[in-house]
């Protein structure tokens, strides 16, 4: 536990993030260049879906990150509630807008993919509905954690919301297996071999890595921004009480 507390120390985190950020940022740029090259040029059209398969290369990684981000947020919220680590609330608060952004991308690109392939922008099937709920959970978390001037006051309620909403994550993942949906089942994470040809799996995984590196970079940046604004607040309060 002593080790965990060391990482929870904000100054230690700042030093660590300053060491990681240049690497994760350059990795993001590099992976996006390679990933986009494969996604847009060096990959074939699908035998059924034609060129629209290229939407998959941004839609599916966004969906993975949207769920990863929620898991990070839920883990941070549990840590905040149980161990009261100073960084945990900050992490959850920094993660929520990122998750909302990725979920927005999933919904919009899915809609733009569904129209030409399924023949509809939107249906209320279990997969699409549970992802929409994920989006509202993120918005709720953002609103709740920013509802008070003092950021520590909304944090407890937001952490409970994040944990309660976590039941939605397995529902999203398994909705396509548990119920009949218009959305197709998983292609990559299934017990059998992936149902994607290597020529299409390559751009998908490269883009997924690029999105992950981007997520790490952005999360570190946002945590730093959050730490800075807490420091400003503490200084202003100290000054106000000194005067």
């Amino acid at each position: 536990m002593a080790n965990l507390h060391r990482f929870a120390n904000p100054n230690r985190f700042l030093r660590l993030s300053r060491a990681i950020l240049p690497w994760s940022a350059s990795l993001t740029v590099l992976l996006f260049i390679v990933g986009l090259y494969f996604a847009l040029f060096a990959s074939p059209a699908d035998y059924q879906q034609g060129e629209t398969v290229r939407i998959m290369y941004v839609h599916v990684p966004s969906a993975w990150i949207a769920m990863l981000c929620y898991s990070v947020m839920a883990a941070a919220s549990a840590t905040a509630l149980i161990w009261r680590h100073p960084l945990a609330d900050i992490t959850a608060r920094a993660a929520a807008p990122i998750g909302a952004g990725f979920t927005l991308i999933v919904l919009a690109t899915g809609s733009l993919w569904g129209k030409p392939m399924w023949g509809t922008w939107w249906v209320w099937d279990a997969r699409l509905t549970s992802v929409l709920i994920l989006f509202f959970l993120y918005l709720g978390h953002i609103a709740l954690s920013r509802a008070f001037d003092d950021p520590t006051r909304g944090a407890r309620a937001a952490a409970v919301l994040a944990l309660v909403g976590f039941v939605n994550v397995p529902i999203i993942k398994f909705s396509v297996d548990w119920w009949n949906t218009l959305h197709q089942p998983a292609s990559v994470s299934r017990l059998a071999a992936p149902a994607i040809d290597p020529a299409m799996l390559r751009p998908l995984l490269l883009m997924a890595l690029a999105f992950t590196a981007y997520f790490v970079t952005l999360l570190l940046l946002r945590i730093r921004a959050e730490l800075t604004s807490r420091k400003i607040r503490a200084l202003q309060l100290a000054q106000a009480s000194a005067e």
């Binding site: 074939p44 059209a45 699908d46 023949g119 218009l182 994607i196």
Partner: peptide, 17 residues
């Protein structure tokens, strides 16, 4: 109303052929 449902298989046309 008729909606198309596609499966989770993605293949280049040449491979499918």
């Amino acid at each position: 109303d008729v909606l198309a449902k596609h499966d989770e298989t993605y293949l280049p046309k040449e491979v499918a052929d």
